[in-house]
Design a protein around this nucleic acid. Structure first.
Lengths: 191, 191
DNA sequence: GGCTGCATGTAAGTCGTTACATGATTTA
DNA sequence: TAAATCATGTAACGACTTACATGCAGCC
């Protein structure tokens, strides 16, 4: 579950939702999007595209021939079925949606969903992180305590990072609830 | 390269360096250490331990029989060869050392190395992150710019997180340079 | 005219997880 | 005494990366 391939599928569908694109470009955009670590290899992307073609989620479009005779680049476009599938994937908010990569992709394509879903995903992600935080802090009390200065510092930094992300999510949740249509009243000075 | 198995090996050696332990406990400590995402499965750990046994990096120690008849738990201990190997791994600072997981593990066991190595690792990690930052920001200028509000926000948050980590590393580097042998003069008020 | 980057693919092999199998020990 | 957790393993399946293969297009 939360297989990489599923994430790719969602991401491809989402990107093509914004306009036709060819494989090479998809790869670049994808790497930029979730690139903060691993990079997506051709060996993953092209087979995935082939599979999606077979499943009729996307179709090849006539090569974009700019002025000079361009070499055939295979440009893909979402089909109606593909769009449906994309909507379904975005709507079916399961536990995999809180996973790091999967969350990022979903978030990036939030424009294509409605607020209800956005809130579910944001809140789900947040409670998942808070869970992790609680578990780790509980664990820390029982275990070492001090021992290794560096290990402790790493933990501290890790906890702080997650806490930051929780605050970020909280802000986003408030923004969703409070003011996307109106011009953000923002009565609370701060979190 | 930067295989998961190598990371496990380094981590196991590092943990056992602090005292004997059995597999189940190793797993818990490991998950706590790099646990912020994936968890280490038995299917990875136990075979790794077996392999390290064969390589003579670790040995089984007599079962710790507490008062009541404890069921045999296989407690492991590092051998001399294992310690050597550990030192070699910590000293051989290659590009894999800047990778996320690998960096974390190395950092956690910094106590077992000397300052020179620590600085090399910290600085390597930092320049790696700065590279990423530069590449992404360059990419961003050329691409979209605005387009998708949510995607942009995700990028912003990502960049900010990495910048934070760079600052963290810079502080650590300064601390290493400034005062570990002496009794921390700490002229900077600050955290 | 050669090198770098664009562009698309495939095959094999590795690596690791998932699921299964087993049983002891503590706690409710 | 049933459930949860401790504890140790293994085998098979499948995903993903690596390396290979190929050629166009633009730049120096």
């Amino acid at each position: 579950m939360a297989r990489r391939a599923d994430t790719i599928e969602l991401a491809v569908l989402g990107l093509l939702h914004e306009g036709p694109m060819h494989g090479y470009e998809l790869r670049k955009r994808l790497n930029l999007m979730l690139g903060w670590g691993r990079v997506l290899s051709y060996g993953s992307l092209y087979p995935a595209l082939k599979k999606m073609l077979r499943a009729n989620l996307i179709t090849e479009v006539a090569t974009t021939t700019t002025p000079t005779s361009r070499r055939p680049r295979i440009v893909y476009e979402v089909t109606a079925a593909g769009n449906e599938h994309f909507q379904r994937l975005m709507t079916e908010v399961g536990p995999t949606a809180w996973e790091d990569d999967n969350f990022d992709i979903r978030f990036a394509f939030f424009s294509s969903t409605d607020m209800e879903i956005r809130l579910r995903v944001l809140e789900g992600r947040r409670s998942r992180l808070q869970e992790r935080l609680a578990r780790v802090q509980g664990e820390l009390e029982r275990t070492q305590a001090e021992v290794n200065r560096y290990a402790a510092e790493l933990q501290r930094h890790g906890v702080e990072s997650v806490e930051r992300e929780v605050r970020w999510l909280s802000d986003l949740i408030q923004a969703e609830r409070g003011g996307p249509p109106a011009t953000a009243p923002a009565p609370s000075p701060h979190d």
